[in-house]
Amino acid sequence: MGTPLGDFVRAKRDSLQPESFGLPDRGRRRSPGLRRSDLAARAGVSVEYLTRIEQGRDRNPSHAVLNALADALSLDARERNHLRYLAKITGGACPGHRPPAPPNREVRPTVRETLRLLEPGMAFVTNRLGDVLAYTSAFELVMGGIGLLDAEAPNLTRYVFTDPRARTVFPDWDQVADERAFDLWLGPSAEASEWFQVQLAPVAGPEFTRRLQQHLPPPQVALRLDHPAAGELRWHREKLELPSTDAQELVVLLPADETTAQAVERLRHGRPLRAVG
């Protein structure tokens, strides 16, 4: 049985082309990407040891090995952070670890007050699982129109993978789905992420489970939204991590163009702003 760390190393290795490292093309092979022997040589470890890591038989590689793998795979800063995080949760995934449990959904009063000060802007509080915990009235106005807030406990990840409307609402659905699956590895805790994955996998199907094993940080791009009433909206996203919380973050959506700003104003027209959700 594999591990998150092993899955990541294997996925990243498969995504690399030998010629990008000045290695010769050795003809057709059964799997794409960099050969295990080439990666082992670049990292200065044995092929047998790299195999144990990828297959989940070694769960506690040293920091030196992790750094060597990061260099050998040419990881960027975000990917290096993710590699270290996966090593941490993989090393703790042994018998006796805490059972899966949902995260705390409480939002601090000072954070709710911060949202109030952001009115009439588009902002919300979420966690890495995708729970929508609090939001401004503008967020309610826009996202309520796509059905995201229909559930008693709205969750963006669940909406993306299980609501048929999501594929129409998000023109770049694959990008958004990759983002949501990747963020689960950075959840409030390994136990909370495991709890959520267990809940979602049966209803989300292979589109979800396949992405869970990719482990490659998706690129940061503008969010496109095909709104049923306002047309295409484009947003830049600023994410601020909140200290001393269960991996909560404050996300501010900024119009990426004048068309989006004007469309939101038209939605607002004639409707008073409401309190934070």
Rank of each mutant, 00 (worst) to 15 (best):
Q248Y: 03
D178E: 10
A222T: 11
A230C: 03
D226S: 12
G187H: 09
S244E: 04
T259F: 00
P243D: 04
E238V: 04
F170H: 07
L186A: 11
W195C: 07
G270K: 08
R268I: 12
A256C: 00
V176P: 01
L186T: 10
F208D: 10
R210A: 15
R211H: 14
L212M: 15
V221M: 07
Q175L: 12
D174H: 05
L186G: 08
R165T: 14
L242S: 01
Q248M: 04
E241Y: 05
P188R: 05
D163W: 01
L225P: 02
R234Q: 00
H269M: 13
T260P: 03
F182Q: 13
S189N: 04
A247C: 00
T259C: 05
L225I: 04
L242E: 02
P217F: 11
L212P: 07
A190S: 14
E194H: 10
R211Y: 12
L212H: 09
P243N: 01
R180Y: 02
L200W: 14
R234P: 00
F182V: 05
S244Q: 06
E194N: 07
P228N: 07
T259V: 05
Q175A: 10
D178A: 14
E249Q: 00
P219H: 11
L254S: 05
L250M: 03
H227C: 04
A177D: 09
V264T: 06
R266Y: 05
A222S: 06
D178Y: 02
R234D: 03
P219N: 10
L233M: 02
Q220A: 12
E265I: 02
D163N: 13
R180C: 12
E179C: 11
V221F: 02
W235C: 00
Q175W: 08
P218Y: 11
T245F: 01
R224E: 11
P217G: 15
L186R: 15
R210M: 13
A166I: 09
A229D: 03
V169Y: 05
P164S: 12
P243T: 00
P206L: 14
A201F: 13
T168A: 11
A229E: 02
H227P: 02
L225R: 04
A192S: 11
E191P: 04
F182S: 12
R268Q: 09
D163G: 09
A166M: 06
Q199P: 08
P243R: 05
H236L: 08
A181G: 12
P164D: 12
A256K: 01
V198K: 15
P164G: 08
R211M: 14
L267K: 04
W195E: 11
T259Q: 06
S244I: 01
L223W: 08
A204K: 09
R234E: 03
A263D: 06
R237M: 04
A201G: 12
L225K: 00
H269E: 13
Q199E: 15
V221Q: 09
T245S: 07
E265W: 10
V198P: 03
T259A: 08
A261V: 03
R268G: 09
V251L: 05
L233S: 01
A230N: 06
W185F: 14
Q248H: 01
P218M: 11
V221I: 09
E194F: 07
D257T: 02
L253P: 01
G187P: 03
L233P: 00
E249P: 00
E238G: 02
G231K: 04
P219C: 10
V221Y: 05
A229M: 06
A222C: 08
E207Q: 15
E207C: 13
